[in-house]
Design a protein around this nucleic acid. Structure first.
Length: 573
DNA sequence: GCCGTTTTCGGCCCGACTGTTTTCAGTCG
């Protein structure tokens, strides 16, 4: 069994959980949490590096001890520290820590007094009224925990970014109508454009805090008010999404926006930076002693600690602070940089609009070219095209291009990569096309080596120029297939094939880290809508957000190039 | 457990809300 970075990170997180239950040194616990995050974010496959005796790079927050544990886990899948800790508690008890309202102290009380070590046992005990008898618990806590545990057992989930936007944006609009409100921003992971968000963090600046809190909790879609104070509140919406409100006065807007945008790790790093300068950074501003020296804007907050403004998408403590210090922040790609779209469907396969409608919709969004890439014959359920229907569509596209102005359709295909790495259409059918996009749509369960070989072979095909949704994942539904992504990215670079960042809300594939790896390896990324209707182009902004999280600049993205340049790129291999 | 142009020891981010308490611990973000 290969040990992935994610496995090492999970082991460290579990150690941190168990140390918390034992009430150990909180800084030691933090060291494990930090190490888990650093390892999880790493592109370099640690176990594989160690297997070929390569020395580990120096990683922030990982010293001799943790490096030793990484080696131990990479070799054996676990480590003695974890095994020893596990002996002290029943398996699965750490899942209780994930429940809102339950931390290590209370989990320990539940376990020691009532023997509770699972979600099911907690629900049972709460229903029987035994939880309220415990010290530090009461009837309200018991009810909250029973509810939270039941929700978790029913499969609580994170929301895809685009879905969260559908709920969050109308809510923000509603809040803007409260008396005295100046600014309403959805901060948090939403503003950082993370692929999924666990809750919506609303930041409001107003002169009438009470008014804003009242309006927030009175929103018609609120199912439950979980907390309500003078400057903050928390609710659960009918859709299941949690929303948090934070109210500050306008002079603190920038500091609060920064604080509430996170990430937590980024905030901690920035506060340390402030501390080194003898300053204190909190959500109200940057302070020297009692005097506020910054806080009205985010720029002023960063400037106070000696940094240029850092885009929210970068704020993960993945090197952005060091880059800012060195004046090496990327100039991130923006939605307005996109000149075209290289993946779309029409009625010919499983789309809903006509060629002409799709072309006009793309043009209306300021794009100057659009590749039509239907499914190929193997995709029966999507009415995939065979050679004959494809040839007919190519004719239609050529014909339509004569009539269109300001937008150019490219004749393409999203051809299936078959199990052996060959393509689902003969070369003769692909020859007349402007663009061949290749994709895996079947046999996700192949062993890693075989899946990798399959995709590498497809990339060798002389006509293939884009690899669609490279990992095959569906957010919150299906993990990506097992594949050596580094080998795929390197082959793509070698063959001058672009890796798609499919902007469909359920995909966002490549991931942010995949984008960053592509950039480091020098491979191009194509941000594509995979539009199946004229509204389907709306998702491009989420694709751009993901690309920005991956540190991509306009030059790293294929479809920021104007048509003439793209045509030249397509002409040469 | 990590880290160091003040330090190899003694620090390690900061504030709000809840519920259960009689002044605050636990939890969260």
């Amino acid at each position: 069994m290969p040990v992935h970075n994610a496995d090492i990170a999970a082991a460290f997180d579990e150690i941190a959980d168990l140390l918390e239950l034992r009430n150990e040194n909180p800084f030691r616990i933090r060291a494990y949490r930090n190490a888990a995050r650093v390892v999880r974010d790493l592109r370099l496959d640690l176990a594989r590096e160690l297997a070929r005796d390569a020395p580990l790079p120096k990683l922030p927050g990982i010293g001799a001890d943790l490096a030793g544990k990484i080696a131990e886990i990479a070799r054996t899948g676990t480590c003695r520290t974890l095994a020893n800790l596990r002996r002290g508690f029943p398996a699965g008890i750490t899942e209780l820590l994930r429940l809102p309202g339950l931390g290590p102290k209370r989990v320990r009380v539940l376990y020691e007094r009532l023997g509770i070590a699972s979600m099911e046992a907690l629900v049972r005990a709460a229903r029987e009224g035994r939880v309220r008898e415990l010290p530090g618990f009461g009837a309200k806590t018991e009810a909250h925990l029973a509810e939270a545990a039941a929700v978790r057992l029913g499969g609580a989930r994170r929301f895809a970014l685009a879905l969260a936007a559908q709920y969050g944006e109308p809510y923000a609009t509603y809040l803007r109508e409260a008396r005295g409100v100046r600014e309403v921003v959805i901060a948090g992971s939403y503003r950082r454009m993370k692929e999924t968000v666990g809750d919506l963090d609303f930041l409001v600046t107003t002169t009438e805090a009470a008014e804003a809190v009242a309006r927030f909790t009175a929103y018609p879609e609120v199912r439950e008010v979980m907390a309500r104070g003078t400057t903050r509140a928390a609710v659960r919406l009918a859709c299941g999404l949690q929303a948090d409100l934070r109210v500050v006065s306008p002079e603190s807007f920038g500091a609060a926006l920064h604080y509430f945008t996170g990430s937590k790790a980024h905030n901690i790093a920035l506060r340390r930076l402030a501390q080194e300068r003898g300053l204190k950074l909190n959500e109200y501003g940057v302070f020297r002693g009692r005097r506020r020296i910054a806080g009205a804007t985010e720029e002023s907050v960063f400037a106070a600690v000696g940094l240029p403004w850092i885009a929210p998408e970068l704020r993960e403590d993945r090197g952005e602070i060091e880059a800012a210090r060195a004046g090496r922040l990327p100039v991130l790609v923006a939605l307005s940089d996109l000149k075209g779209d290289l993946h779309a469907h029409t009625r010919a396969s499983d789309g809903r609009a006509t060629l002409r409608d799709m072309a006009l919709a793309a043009k209306a969004r300021g794009l100057s070219y659009l590749a039509i890439t239907e499914h190929s014959q193997r995709e029966r359920q999507a009415r995939g095209l065979d050679s004959v229907r494809l040839a007919r569509q190519v004719d239609e596209i050529r014909c339509l291009n004569e009539q269109l102005e300001g937008i150019r359709l490219l004749a393409g295909i999203e051809v299936d990569i078959l199990e052996d790495g060959t393509l689902d259409l003969p070369d003769a059918a692909l020859a007349p096309l402007d663009l061949v996009v290749a994709a895996v749509h079947s046999r996700f369960q192949l062993p890693r080596a075989q899946q990798t070989r399959r995709i590498l072979r497809a990339l060798e095909h002389p006509r293939v120029r884009v690899l669609a949704h490279p990992s095959g994942r569906l957010l919150e539904a299906r993990p990506g297939y097992e594949v050596d992504m580094q080998a795929v990215i390197r082959k793509a670079r070698e063959r001058n094939v672009a890796l798609e960042l499919n902007a469909h809300p359920d995909r966002l594939d490549l991931s942010d880290l995949g984008c960053r790896q592509a950039k480091e390896e020098g491979a191009l990324v194509a941000i594509s809508s995979d539009a199946h209707s004229t509204d389907g182009f709306d998702v491009l902004r989420f694709g751009v957000g993901q690309a920005r999280r991956g540190w991509l600049e306009a030059k790293d993205v294929l479809n920021t190039r104007p048509l003439s340049e793209l045509t030249r790129w397509l002409a040469r291999r």
